[in-house]
Amino acid sequence: MAELSDSLLFVAVLAYALAMLGFAADAASRRATRVLSVAESGQLLVGGGGPPLLVDESPPRTTGTAGTAAMALTLVGWLVHVGSVVTRGIAADRVPWGNMYEFSSAAALVAVTGFLVLVARGRVETSLGAFVMLPVVLYLGLAGTVLYTAAGPLVPALNSYWIKIHVAAAVTASGAFLLSGVIALLYLLRARFDERTDVGEAVRFPVSLGRVLPSAGSLDRAAYVVIAFAFPVWTFAVIAGAIWAEAAWGRYWGWDPKETWSFITWVLYAGYLHARATAGWKGRKAAWVAVAAAAALIVDYYVVNIFVVGLHSYA
């Protein structure tokens, strides 16, 4: 069963990687046709000797064959990924989030789920796919190689029903936060692209990628929607962790490195939500806060687990 889970994860990563290529091909072809159609309609501007500028603010975005195939591959990958997580749980005879490898796989599953939900709800366009799949593939690749741990039972402190609740919430929130971090970075890219092209400046890679991204406004809103979902879940995870710590160690909070970094992450996301409501902080500054918060989350999970000794050093 454990081998089946590993093979399924491999297949899922393969499907995601192919989907990424599909999304990229779709974006590339769409860009070509769009420039062409705009050029045909005579709306091409040539600004101050610079490159041609698109004046069409909201070009029609239809998904091409490659995009449809990529979406299908993502769905297939998602199903196989679900299978991998479930069989892992059966193999270990417990919830499948007991070590860093399992946690990473489950968090990536949440991120892909979040992306699929955003697309299904029409919050973002499929053109985001390539940019979401790239980190997912890298992340799962790292999880499957560097962090890989064989399926086994848990140490006594982890053996509690609170682990199911606490870690399930932490995985869900982490997956969503990582997704929002990617979206916030893409927003910053797109905003930079808009800023440059608005004044007719030439854009180079990677800012030129902004051309195939959804509009800055929709990226900003998507990042917010994902964080607004994840923040209460994370809050709940931290509280459930405190309740578990109270049962296991006799205190609900002790500034253990893991607790400290969860707190930092929480405060930064609270900062993000405040920033969005504060004049002068909306938009780019808020997006940077979201990126910093996602970085704190990564420190919380990976740096603390691997390099810092504390009560949570178990995996």
Partner: peptide, 20 residues
């Protein structure tokens, strides 16, 4: 609101050495 935001960032920043 701006002060609240600033203090939140200071709180997060202040906790960082406690995490390392």
């Amino acid at each position: 609101m701006r002060t609240a935001l600033l203090l939140l960032f200071l709180l997060a920043l202040g906790a960082v050495p406690g995490g390392f």
